[in-house]
């Protein structure tokens, strides 16, 4: 039951990200790409990708606070 709630919570949290944040987050966390490669792929710098990942991570953690 908890796993199902968690899965729903994660899906909802991902939906709360902007398209760019979600792309960066999923590429980094679920696909394991390096930030430099992600930056190249989405046409931005590694630093910008890093900032984007930070924002995405903060939003995800806030959304999933009750599970942590």
């Amino acid at each position: 039951m908890r796993n199902r709630e968690l899965s729903g919570g994660i899906t909802k949290a991902l939906e709360g990200l902007t398209p760019r944040e979600r792309t960066v987050f999923e590429m980094r966390h679920y696909e394991g790409l390096r930030l430099r490669a992600i930056g190249d792929m989405i046409g931005t710098t590694e630093e910008a990708a890093k900032n984007c990942l930070f924002r995405a991570t903060q939003k995800m953690r806030m959304s999933l606070e009750s599970f942590v």
């Binding site: 796993n3 199902r4 968690l6 899965s7 994660i10 966390h29 679920y30 995800m60 953690r61 999933l64 599970f67 942590v68």
Partner: peptide
């Protein structure tokens, strides 16, 4: 520690999904 727990949670979902 909380951040690592958060990352583990994200991976739990992977296995569930």
């Amino acid at each position: 520690a909380r951040h690592r727990k958060f990352l583990e949670l994200l991976d739990e979902r992977d296995a569930v999904a």
